[in-house]
Write a protein that binds this DNA or RNA. Sequence first.
DNA 1: GCATATTGTTAAGTAGGTAAACAGTTTTGC
DNA 2: GCAAAACTGTTTACCTACTTAACAATATGC
Lengths: 159, 159
Amino acid sequence: MAKPTRARLPTSEPLKMAPELEELIGYNLKRAYVVVQKDYRAALGDGGLSPRTFAALSLAVAYPNLTQSNLARMLGIERSGLVAIIDELERDGLLKRTTVPGDRRVQALVPLEAGIAAHRATLAKVKAHEDKLLEDLSDVEKETLIFLLRKIRRHETES
Amino acid sequence: MAKPTRARLPTSEPLKMAPELEELIGYNLKRAYVVVQKDYRAALGDGGLSPRTFAALSLAVAYPNLTQSNLARMLGIERSGLVAIIDELERDGLLKRTTVPGDRRVQALVPLEAGIAAHRATLAKVKAHEDKLLEDLSDVEKETLIFLLRKIRRHETES
DNA sequence: GCATATTGTTAAGTAGGTAAACAGTTTTGC
DNA sequence: GCAAAACTGTTTACCTACTTAACAATATGC
């Protein structure tokens, strides 16, 4: 009598996948996103800016005197969710909230020199991480991928 | 004297973006993923399976008697993270944990009839949601996108 | 046999948000 | 003018989707 067949995949075999799952854009999108995000964190280390913090800083540097509301809209998140991100950037001395003469509700975001430097340094690291992770994609493939992702992004709800 | 210039973007203008951010694959990937995920949830409603639960059910249906460890590996998550997902599927009567004769550590996952039906129905809804959301992409574009995302997924860490 | 590995599980923590409410401050509609 | 509506930043509570570390029970390698 043979020993009972194992009701599982031997770990030495390649992992199988549900065929229909693998054909879904959403599933592939998520799995690819996880790959890139993990590599981002590995590349930038513990002291580095998180993806969302880097994105916020990038926009604040590119568009000085942005308000938090507008920045939240650009990032596609709620105003309330941006508060912690700005708190972190301000605490790290990368930008500061400043009052605006014409509107006392608003706090314009002014990038500081350390913030501009941190942005430049982090951008270089992020580009290096992407270049290395995606070195098996040709330039045309990368451009095509961005083109297609932007086509999906056209459905972003601009609340 | 003109009234002080507003230190923010008028909301009537199109939202600007940080140029370098828009060229990053990771950023576009995340934003596109959020679009698809939100549409998924809107399409499936409150009673529907979440993306992760649907993915787990798909694999459990495609490969009956899978163990939780193997399923977690296929999904690219930790064993501990899968427990809540299986709890939910079992609570909803979609599958059940069963003991395996040869190995008393293992709990094989057996899809129930309700689970097979729920999987089929949910798959149809998910396909409909993707078809509608991505109707502005041609079939070739969709295939290309999946091809490129899978190229990124080749870097998945198969721990 | 004993050391080592594996399985499922719990508990605690993390990341990245949303939703609702709020006070303070404009802006709109008459 | 002035009340109603809208907008800003913020706090609080909550949520989703994980991870890490530990654990007992069980199985495997040598």
